[in-house]
Design a protein around this nucleic acid. Structure first.
Lengths: 345, 345
DNA sequence: CACGACTGTGAACACGTGTTCATTCGATCG
DNA sequence: CGATCGAATGAACACGTGTTCACAGTCGTG
């Protein structure tokens, strides 16, 4: 069949690929016991230097590495950490992954990456993860289902990146949305904007609801009523669609406070592009997160910094601490955003 | 010590968290043998419905899930796939991860994510991966070290996303850089640009070198000499720095062909921002990859599509096929880019 | 020279699961 | 009603490793 036709290319594929040398193989070749092999790969084990040498050379010729799966079977806690992430269509998540996972890796932890599409899938994802005896699970899906505390027992320690209200048994690193939104609104009011709307993240998303509420409250503090409060997904496309709807509804405020930078970029895109409006002359726009794009001079988005360095450092610390002392008290960290004024306000 | 001070918050942390119910526990509670438990969780196994019921209820109360690590110990090939990724500071990689990993997940595969910083770290990363009996390793670091074929045996099947020249024993999905660069150059020449430069990716990166060479060759076909050929990292910051250097060297061409979109964005950022030049009126810019940002109306980057859907589908197929038939012939797939004209040319 | 302390070694066990192999039981067919 | 077949079950084994334990050997000290 195809066996002859592709014989030339097939030569590269050795059947031995699926073969994996075991400690017993190495022991046999080195003329020692299997235990000696284990010791040779265990730092500080009691083994003669000559024996270790014999084992290492035998291991090298056979291409042997201890099977990590078998190793974790003995240890009570594995070296595997699960990372449950949502769509990093939101660039902030992409940046988070890009820097958090190497940080965990640096601590000698392996990362099992689990992608979660919609919110309903989170439970399934955690269920999948539960099959692995992970040392810790990092959840960074933005939103979070409130799951049963009884079931909670099965999942091992959980560290959340994002708002974790209603969860009193998980460590978390969040952002102080109220302070951030207040900074944005105060800034816009100070610049003379009176008609201000809010395009927040999904209403059923903790940070989406939180920021919308903070917006209304802060505006009320200035004696102003919101031009509108609407919700959309944390994506450029979702924000674009919502903005078109705003225009169709004849709602054109002097400023828009957005749930995050992706939304802000989508808003600006439609305002400048399809609607032909000037930003910030006619409409000011503020984002949230300060993703790297926001600082590019062609974009120059005024936004709220959500310092990713701090977040990474905190998450890393929390994971390390939780693994080292599983019964340490729960810690909730709240990062304080700062306003970064650029060209869109 | 802290035990009393934080007693209230500590209550949430049960010591039982580290405890994990085993199949023997379930068997004992259900009054059956341990084998019955295994059967209850194995679809199609020969077990009476009544017995399965007893096992499942016992398992539910104990919160039991089969230990995935122990399960993989028997099977010759595991359900774990390693993903070795470079910095997704390059947004194209972020989009790739965002869509490839769910696709693999959908096939019932778990992903072990390994981050690789610089090129030297790739060997170490593969070494780490080698400890796990992974079913397949997907390498998407952009560049790739040529490693020994002897050592190659130890790593199991490898599927590469990106150029894989010099590797005759790995499946790969690449992009036809030559066709892409030719489309870009032809387009610019047709629009009357005569002085054209190229800012490609790193010279020691296969795609960086490949595209630079294709640029020179295509330009020669038009009887033109390149205004310049330079290299920089696939990042906005790197491109910005390189562009400043161009200006300092008094090299201002009528068009710049960039190694990818990130470079193009960095170039445009400096040209429009610091240099106050008009794009495309004074300088035309072409990118490569067509990341989502490129299509935003505020950016409108002319670029070469590097269809991520096709890439994902191919990678997924290659992984599936390689796992199903380990000795199938090596397949190298080349995706053909298309020119997408927007506002920067 | 005798004794204890220490080092190096391998047999045996443990980790938690899937799988093979007899064995038993009930049902079906001749 | 006896023979036969299939379903259901549990004992035993396999996967590959780390760890405990007892034993032999060596060295140094009295």
């Amino acid at each position: 069949m195809t066996e002859d036709a592709d014989a030339s290319t097939k030569d590269g594929m050795a059947p031995a690929l699926t073969y994996r040398a075991t400690a017993a193989d190495v022991a046999r070749r080195a003329g020692v016991s299997r235990v000696a092999v284990s010791r040779a790969f265990t730092p500080g084990a009691s083994i003669a230097e000559a024996t270790r040498g014999k084992v290492l050379t035998a291991a090298a010729t056979l291409g042997y590495r201890p099977n990590a799966l078998a190793r974790q079977l003995n240890r009570r806690a594995s070296e595997i950490v699960a990372f449950v992430g949502g769509s990093n269509h939101n660039i902030y998540y992409a940046e988070l992954i890009d820097r958090l996972l190497p940080a965990l890796q640096q601590d000698g932890l392996k990362t099992l990456y689990v992608h979660v599409g919609d919110r309903a899938a989170l439970a399934d994802a955690l269920e999948e993860v539960a099959e692995y005896p992970v040392a810790c699970t990092v959840v960074a899906t933005g939103s979070l289902e409130r799951f049963d505390l009884d079931d909670r027992q099965r999942y091992g320690p959980i560290v959340v990146s994002g708002p974790a209200e209603g969860f009193d048994d998980v460590d978390s690193v969040g952002t102080d949305s109220r302070i951030g939104i207040r900074l944005a609104v105060d800034h816009l009011v100070a610049r003379g904007r009176r008609s201000i709307g809010c395009l927040a993240g999904p209403a059923d998303n903790p940070s989406g609801a939180q920021r919308a509420a903070a917006f209304v409250a802060t505006l009320a503090g200035h004696g102003l009523a919101p031009a509108f409060v609407r919700h959309c997904g944390y994506t450029v496309a979702g924000a674009a669609e919502a903005t078109r709807q705003l225009l169709a509804d004849d709602l054109l405020p002097g400023a828009i406070v957005c749930g995050n930078d992706m939304i802000a970029l989508g808003v600006i895109d439609v305002l400048r592009g399809e609607a032909g409006l000037a930003v910030p002359a006619q409409v000011a726009v503020v984002g949230f997160d300060d993703i790297s794009l926001a600082g590019w001079s062609t974009i120059g988005l005024t936004t709220l910094s959500n310092p990713i360095d701090q977040r990474i450092a905190h998450l890393r610390d929390l994971v390390r601490r939780r693994i080292a002392e599983p019964e340490a008290p729960i810690r909730r960290i709240l990062i304080e955003p700062r306003l970064i004024v650029r060209d869109t306000t």
